[in-house]
Design a protein around this nucleic acid. Structure first.
Lengths: 260, 260
DNA sequence: GTTAGGCCTG
DNA sequence: CAGGCCTAAC
């Protein structure tokens, strides 16, 4: 089973690239982030014509996630509140969470808030959001021990995940509070699929559009697949496909594919 | 001597097309309209690198004209008030007029207001603007008997200049008042270079972006070269080059080239 | 409808 | 630098 995660930075702008990629990389589930489109305007047909089942959870202009699955998913769930009914529904105003089950594995597709600048209101939102995510996963784990949690985490857990031109000290996506919040989540029983196979630096999944960052490989590894033990043991590979980042008008993120 | 006029609908968006065209069509002066950029942001280098001298007169977002000349121009003049010092300077808030002399011929490059809808405030502005233009030309003619007045006139003088899908009756760009205003100007001693060589219909210089107008050749001939007698007599050709209109992301206007 | 620029966000 | 939204223009 192959699961891919890809922040496409607008599905409508990236549609042709995503469809081409899906044609050449026949993954079982493609997890999209930053679709940036309300559900009624999501381009479903190109995916159904390829034989995929799209499950979408979007909003206008910002955020938005989707699961594109080669077979129908079971128990698809949009947002936090579907799993945490007592949660303040404000946490679902931003569409950042969608999940569904395939072959007994729950795929949790996340677009973690970026956080803007350390100490900002958005940073506090990010930390709060990660606390909610932990509760959400705790609940899911009760009925779904096999989870592949993937997406754009906007967090690089280790310094090796960040190019060394960056002053990591107190940098958004690398600050201690957000790293600790993510570690708290992983402590529920998740492990990084990519690091099962690769302990090298220089492997990134996101490169800023500015300052020719991709050409100089000044990237960050912030798109992840985190697996619960049984799935982690089964995992056979996890790779970052940087080819789409080389195209004209690319997303700033590259897809990451795990096989288990 | 070859003079071209081209409403490029943003020089920054069309830069590559314009530079390519200029490389393949080595005109002596290229008159641009709707550059849509303030002078400090006008891309001068691509033109100077081709050996051209750019003279620019622009504003933010709207209008803007430029003369791109293979040799330095003499007596370059921006706006109406440079020639009509007593004129209300409000007439130069919109950057629509630039002129300069080459080999004794004054090139007057114009972007005539579109006028929006008949009877609208913008329509009245167009008619007023054309009256000012007449005064401007009268003054210029005192010292420059040889004039090539060209640009986007946003007026089709004859029904033959308009595709027959258009209800010409009271259509902007074809109404009697604006046609009469233009005829009043031409009566100063200008003749249409294009009609010296071609009396056929179906020759257009502008096609609406909508309704696949170009594919169906539903255009208008609204970009003109008007010449004073000596220049008119010397004129050897006047053609509309529709090739650029076929490109991806074209301007809605095609260049018109006169040779004299 | 189609294309622009400008603004705001990442 | 690259999104989408807004507005204006044609």
């Amino acid at each position: 089973m192959k699961i891919a995660t890809w922040n496409v930075n607008s599905i409508r702008t990236r549609l042709e690239q995503v469809i081409n990629w899906l044609g050449e990389n026949s993954v079982d589930v493609l997890c999209l982030q930053e679709t940036k489109v309300i559900d009624k305007d999501f381009p479903l047909n190109p995916f159904t014509e390829l034989g995929y089942y799209p499950y979408i959870y979007g909003q206008k202009a910002y955020n938005g996630v989707a699961l594109i699955s080669r077979q129908p998913l079971e128990d698809v769930s949009m947002g936090f509140t579907a799993v945490l009914p007592d949660l303040d529904p404000q946490w679902d105003e931003q569409k950042r969470v969608i999940s569904g089950v395939i072959d007994g594995v729950r795929i949790v597709n996340l677009y973690v808030p970026n956080g803007s600048a350390i100490g900002s209101e958005k940073y506090e939102y990010k930390l709060g959001w990660l606390k909610v995510l932990r509760e959400y996963l705790q609940t899911l784990l009760l009925s779904n021990p096999e989870i592949c949690m993937c997406g754009d985490f906007n967090i690089a857990l280790e310094d090796i995940d960040i190019n060394d031109k960056v002053k990591i000290e107190n940098h958004i996506m690398a600050s201690e509070s957000e790293r600790q919040a993510l570690r708290d989540i992983l402590s529920l029983g998740f492990a990084d699929a990519f690091r099962k196979f690769n302990n090298e630096g220089g492997n990134y999944s996101w490169w800023d559009y500015r300052t020719a960052a991709f050409k100089r490989n000044l990237g960050w590894r912030i798109d992840h697949h985190y697996l619960t033990p049984v799935v982690y043991e089964r995992a056979q590979s996890c790779i970052i496909d940087i080819e789409p980042r080389k195209l004209e008008k690319p997303s700033d993120h590259a897809p990451v594919i795990v096989e288990f």
